[in-house]
Amino acid sequence: MTNDVVAEMSEAIRTVLGAASVSQLRRLSGGASRETWRFNADNSDFVLQRVRNGTPNGLGAEPAVLKAAFAAGVPVPELVIDGSESTALERPFMIVRAVAGETIARKILRDEEFTTARSHLVGQLGRAAAQLHRIDPSQVPGLVVEDQIRRYRTALDTVGEPHPVFEVAFRWLEQNMPISTGTSVVHGDYRLGNVMVDHNGLSAILDWELSHLGDPMEDLGWLCVRAWRFGGALPAAGLGSYEELFDAYEAESGVRPDFEVVRWWEILGTLKWGIICISQAHTHLSGLVRSHELAAIGRRVCENEYDLIELLLEDAQ
């Protein structure tokens, strides 16, 4: 990245914002389909997310969800510019006000500076989940109901690496489908790593790009998947019990989550992460993106087979 590119982009951002000056523009790591940048404009910090080259779907419904979430009082970064339709930065983008804190799960779970945060976090995550499930879906017209089983069945078949344990899990999920808790806005990737945490705990829910309409218990189940405990001993984000999470959710929503339903979603989540691991390794193996990091993720598939066996055998007892 040359200085020219940064200067040119800073100037484009300055124009979009109508700011007097833009400085300290730098690229952060970002996800698979987004570039993430950070900068300062007129003494405030902002984050810019821009669609990567070759990503077909633009920003999808994310700016609309962020706006609706902010309006509903959910802790999210404030959307400043929705550049979904703009060509000012060549590709679709959005700018949000930066929120201070840490996203790296292992730091949040282990570093001393987050001791106080850890004691509040599970309760805050439970309450924030209940808040986000109250977002009025009619405010976010771009969101669609997504059949998670079908989506990940297709993803697995696309790669074509059959795993007997995953097939058992698919059968079990189909045969034990819970009665729907309702249809609400679901974050779709609600876990440590996608939330900003400061010294007092949860400060913002980030990364809404997988949000869709569905059973709200999906978010609670995903939060308890073993991969998202990051080595922590307890089920909810590695930090708390199911009861602690459910108590907070109930306090905010008046609805007590049903353990069996959350568990069904946790099992689906474990299967889903296993399949995502296969897909990520395939991204390397197919030559799409050669990366030893993506390659290594392929050897995490078996962790999910292991967890599925444990979860399903425990459920059968």
Partner: peptide, 15 residues
């Protein structure tokens, strides 16, 4: 299905 998981468990543990 559950018996099958018990049979597959040692293989998964090896992985």
């Amino acid at each position: 299905l559950m018996q099958l998981l018990a049979v597959l468990k040692p293989v998964v543990e090896d992985k």
